[in-house]
């Protein structure tokens, strides 16, 4: 699913950007409350958006909305659902999903995210923040969405679980053909994990392009007052001293490179 926004209004500013189909798209933006609504196609001016290169209207937008799932940064408690199974079942009802075999769907969406069957009977209040995050993914997958919007995906995850979640995102993208878009206030996360990058600065100006295009021209980021990942800064500053370091994403790789050049 590819979404192109043209001159769409966020906080009185006009923005244009594209969520690329079949990619991991990353947003870096400080105030994301209005962005969330835009991406989920809530309260928007249909004339200013194209989906898969087609114009949309107030009728077709309803179908498009059904193909989108939003995963918020924190799990929101729904007081009348106690167990994981209750919560998943409730989601099917809430979204009026038409599913042949509900129980199978529930087990499957749990399995994709890496939770085993035993979790179905667990009381949600006893889940850790990591388990709650995976439950959120399972809920989002029930409707078999084409676009998954994730708010701060890696927050509150340790190193091991950050890697696991990234593998899950890749699997959803490659095996299940999903388009992923997430937003975060952590520029390192954008650099590390996104293929297509959309940065919105404090004056609501947009810097967008492939990961390389955006991060390997850091003068532009500097001009817009955007923090630059330290791993890029080291390479840039070495280049100024005529040391030919490459751009790296992992500390071990840059160390090997530094070792070669010292």
């Amino acid at each position: 699913m590819e979404l192109s926004y043209k001159n769409i209004t966020i906080n009185k500013h006009k923005l244009s950007f594209t969520i690329k189909h079949g990619m991991i798209n990353g947003f870096y933006i400080d105030n994301n409350d209005s962005l969330k609504e835009l991406l989920a196609l809530n309260d928007i001016d249909e004339k200013k958006i194209k989906i898969d290169n087609k114009t949309i209207n107030n009728k077709s937008i309803i179908d498009y909305k059904k193909r989108i799932s939003l995963i918020e940064k924190e799990y929101n408690n729904i007081f009348f659902t106690t167990t994981v199974h209750d919560r998943l079942k409730y989601e099917i009802k809430r979204k009026e999903l038409v599913i042949k075999n509900e129980e199978k769907k529930i087990v499957d969406s749990q399995k994709i995210v890496g939770l085993n069957k035993d979790y179905l009977d667990r009381n949600i209040n006893t889940l850790s923040s990591r388990e709650k995050k995976l439950l959120q993914f399972a809920i989002a997958l029930l409707s078999n969405p084409d676009l998954i919007i994730i708010e701060e995906p890696f927050i509150k995850l340790d190193m091991k679980n950050e890697k696991k979640l990234f593998l899950l995102l890749q699997k959803l993208k490659e095996k299940y053909n999903k388009t992923i878009v997430f937003y975060t206030n952590d520029i390192d996360i954008i650099y590390k994990y996104c293929e297509h990058v959309i940065i919105v600065d404090n004056n609501y100006e947009v810097i967008t392009g492939s990961n390389k295009e955006v991060f390997q021209r850091s003068e532009i980021l500097k001009k817009h007052n955007i923090e630059i990942p330290e791993i890029i800064e080291i390479t840039n500053k070495a280049k100024k001293k005529n040391v030919k370091l490459d751009y790296h994403k992992d500390v071990r790789d840059i160390i090997k490179d530094i070792y070669k050049h010292v």
Partner: peptide, 22 residues
């Protein structure tokens, strides 16, 4: 790292460069 915690980037870089005596 064994516990699963990530060092801040510049700390991680410093510690590892120290291992190589750089």
């Amino acid at each position: 790292n064994k516990i699963g915690l990530k060092l801040p980037f510049m700390v991680d870089l410093s510690v590892k460069l120290q291992d190589y005596n750089l």
